[in-house]
Amino acid sequence: MAEPASAGTWMQSFLAALAGPVIFIGRVASIVPLMRQRKQLRLRETAYYLDLCGAKSLPIVLAICFLMGLVMAVNGEIQLSKVGQEIFVVDLVGFAVLKEFGPLMVALIATGRAGSAFAAEIGTMKVDEEISALATMGIRPEAYLVLPKLLAMLLALPVLTVFGDAAGILGGMVIGVTSMDIPIAAYWSRTVESLDYMTFLLGAAKSFAFAVVITLAGCYYGFVTRADAQGVGRAATSAVVASIFLVVIVDVIITILYSFIGY
């Protein structure tokens, strides 16, 4: 008899836990129609976050993606040399970077930089009652705080992904040219031959979804920050953990969707 009751309460608590994020997403969604008004776009704020999550993240994105390309090429060389087909390292690095590692690495870096920053910022504002102040000024906190971040991330992540893709391929090329003695021109022409722009575009398109997930997770944990000493730190940690988890889940879903259209 205890079993259904505990299942019921479990279900209840599960739904209650789900209610928060769902309501939050609903509130964010309700402000999307406001985006038609230029005032709501808050270009200044958007530019600030674009700088934070985009331009300032560029060096680390370039470095990490370059190294990823390097590592993949080295491992690919070791395996493919067994069958005497080292030239396919080009395909390996190209496809892996464009389809997965470019967007994913950028998303993870953005989680670490932007997601946690969003949670901390909104959390601090909540603790300092700035969120309340916004509300009493009649400004929707979601519109004021989430929208610029969302816009900035939607712009920054794809751009970063493009940079990351290029850096990754460059990393593979460095190994190809130095360690495998493939001429640069041969590496380049093989890259151009084996990859196509749809692979590149669909890979980069993933980062739109990642941007939404990271921003919403970061902001959500900011908004539910408890006003105690560890509240903000906890919010940032939760935001990062949830973002990474959600990014991977979303990546899986998108990969499945892409497989339906043959990519």
């Binding site: 530019a47 674009l50 700088d51 985009g54 331009a55 300032k56 560029l58 712009l155 751009v159 970063l160």
Partner: peptide
């Protein structure tokens, strides 16, 4: 920096 970032990306 923003300009370089966006233009470079595009």
């Amino acid at each position: 920096r923003l300009g370089v970032f966006v233009i470079g990306g595009v």
